[in-house]
């Protein structure tokens, strides 16, 4: 794979990691984590590990996103104490 595409993938994954850790909105953080996971899968494809990339794309970008949104649903906006 040509190096500008890999460089673009690394830039996107770094920006997604920083934004996902620093954003205050929980839903935005969950979606940014999905972007991080999908870019990680793309980097695995560029490295030639198709099986690892497939697992990462299916689990990290698919099911964990659903669980994150359900976990946000379980939290409340204000504390009850």
């Amino acid at each position: 794979m040509p190096w500008p595409i890999e460089f673009l993938l690394f830039v996107i994954i770094t920006v997604a990691a920083v934004v996902g850790l620093s954003v205050r909105n929980l839903l935005a953080a969950a979606v940014t984590f999905n972007i991080f996971s999908f870019m990680s899968a793309s980097i695995m494809v560029s490295l030639g590990a198709i099986d690892v990339a497939f697992t990462e794309a299916v689990v990290g970008a698919g099911v964990v996103g659903v669980y994150g949104i359900i976990a946000i649903l379980l939290t409340s906006r204000k504390s009850r104490d």
Binding site: D51, A53, T55, V58, G62
Partner: peptide
């Protein structure tokens, strides 16, 4: 090809979810 039991199971679960 790439894939197998774990990935197929996760995709089946994703359809139900």
């Amino acid at each position: 090809s790439p894939g197998g039991g774990f990935q197929g199971g996760v995709l089946l679960a994703a359809g139900v979810l």
